[in-house]
Design a protein around this nucleic acid. Structure first.
Lengths: 337, 337
DNA sequence: TTGAAAGCGCTAACAA
DNA sequence: TTGTTAGCGCTTTCAA
């Protein structure tokens, strides 16, 4: 059976209260008593009963994270990386991490309501913000602490971290234009995702600034999977006037584009330039290595988790709205190096 | 403020106990009373306080999962997929999922002790079993419920699910031999992982059965990353007598091998055959599509989670030791189709 | 410096 | 069929 404060109290011959105080690090315990209690606790292998603490303190020391998965074979490396960041940061603060996996939709919303309503977590992490994001509306409405990765189009004030996708895509596009490309295609993300618009805007802005036409036939959409990148890439490459460069809204789709190009016997980097977004580890070791807009995914995971914990502890976070600069990482898939 | 049983009791004019019983679905509550209670609960938006329930019932309805991450940029798609399986199955049983992310080592062991000791979870999921696996020794010692993905070399009885890696690699190797390959290299997994040995044994068994020599220079090891696959692939391909086929212990390394081969101007599937293991979604859409030994990762996640929940609920699981058959999925990277 | 007592929200044994 | 009581393990007043 597990050791409780009661057991220690009985053994040392003091009250439960005193044991609690000694173990809690309060200074109104005589030094001798404290020593005896600490030693007994150590010898008996005492561990606080987190659940009991939570009930009493009305704080769970747990953050919740509902991963928006897309079907069973969902496996975007992006999520593992951000989860690692979140998990490691939580551990540093001795917070636990409660995870749910739900596809966007009714069940997902239910998961949010469950986590909030059951008071199992002190706060939530929301990633991949969406247009008119119901998760955010709900959490703001409930006054429940949360931090998002991504901005929102709602007129609501909430803490978030985001990467300037407009700037990232502008830079990527400009880079291709500087290399002489005139027909640059873009595979966008599902339009319900906030970042889809920012990135698309950056692509268009760069074209317009350089006096290049924004052509509808060169803009398409995929669901962020390698499969969709492959399919849309194939489609673009079989156009009557195919593009000489393709940018994808994320790396996974860019890798799909590379497959599509290679299947057609094109040498990526020479016959076709390809650029992605995210800089997942896979990007560096693809063939050819993928030029991409880097966002520090692991660090972002740590950051949103840290901000949330500060919020929970009522330490005002240093910054409520963090905007990070993306960085174009030039590798071989874009040619010109 | 959150609604409690007390609030409902006061409003309906009955005792807390009666409310608890009505909501708990017991049948010793008068139908009229029950209806009034249910309605009040609905109207007031009652949600049970999970933490309080846990403390009282001595059951958390939570399973723990400590993900063995390898560094910050850790992003094996394999883990997202198994996590999705675990998470979805847990949700079906109304169990929560507590996740930690720790690199194998002292901190990881601490995480196990913390989860067990703090009584935050009713059971644990252990994946990627290792030789003399300390996690398993500890959990068996503690008598703590857990289910593993992978066997162990310890003389201990515990429930697990595994895929017959020996058979999988035997089949893959035999397939290459049947295609006429004589020099087949193998990039193995870190030897502390249990599956490394099973798979290696399958490779050797197939060679020996066919009277082919097991050559040390054709057997090497990588840490399961694409980067290591790339590096070891490059090394193998620059041998004086390079292999005509390379099998990797997982898909990520196989993808690295493909990159290495393509960099050298080799056409994978024609000049070099490559086979992986896992069948991550990425494998299907690589260029060329990767021949690989399929294991149903998502289903395994669901299965170990289901078994654990049965164990926790004291329903004896149908099977304590499940061995799944792998299936060779032939695509273009191995040629011959 | 210490202890008694109350109570977080819930369940369950027992009594009525 | 319902209510009273006790208590899960802990923290935190308040009083001594």
């Amino acid at each position: 059976m597990a050791v409780t404060l009661k057991d220690i109290a009985r053994r040392v011959g003091v009250s439960i209260t005193t044991v609690s105080r000694a173990l809690g690090g309060y200074d109104d315990v005589a030094e001798g008593t404290r020593q005896r209690i600490l030693q007994a606790a150590r010898e008996m292998g005492y561990r606080p009963h987190t659940i009991a603490q939570s009930l009493r303190r009305q704080r769970t020391n747990t953050v919740g994270f509902i991963i928006p998965t897309a079907g069973p074979r969902f496996s975007d490396p992006y999520f593992t990386e951000i989860l690692t960041g979140i998990g490691n940061e939580a551990a540093e603060h001795e917070f636990d991490l409660l995870v749910s996996t739900r596809a966007p939709g009714a069940q997902e919303q239910e998961a949010y309501e469950r986590m909030v309503g059951s008071r199992r977590v002190d706060g939530l992490l929301v990633i991949r913000t969406r247009c008119r994001d119901e998760r955010i509306t709900y959490l703001v409405e409930q006054g429940f602490p949360f931090v998002a990765f991504g901005r929102s189009d709602l007129d609501l004030d909430f803490p978030y971290v985001d990467v300037d996708g407009t700037k990232g895509l502008d830079e990527a596009t400009q880079y291709l234009i500087d290399l002489g490309h005139q027909r640059i295609a873009y595979i966008s993300a599902p339009p319900n995702l906030m970042f889809a618009h920012y990135r698309l805007a950056g692509y268009k802005r760069a074209l317009e600034r350089n006096g290049l036409p924004v052509q509808e036939e060169l803009i398409t959409t995929g669901r962020l999977t390698q499969e969709d990148g492959y399919r849309e890439g194939s489609r673009l490459l079989t156009l009557e006037h195919p593009p000489t460069a393709i940018i994808a809204a994320n790396d996974l789709m860019a890798l799909g584009v590379i497959s599509a190009a290679q299947e057609r016997g094109l040498a990526v980097g020479r016959d076709l330039a390809v650029i992605g977004f995210d800089d997942i580890p896979l990007a560096e070791h693809s063939h050819p290595p993928l030029t991409t807009v880097h966002q520090p995914i692991y660090e972002i995971g740590k950051m949103i988790c840290r901000m949330l914990i500060q919020l929970i502890k009522n330490e005002e976070p240093v910054q409520r709205r963090v905007m990070l600069e993306p960085a174009l990482v030039i590798r071989e898939s874009s040619g010109g190096c």
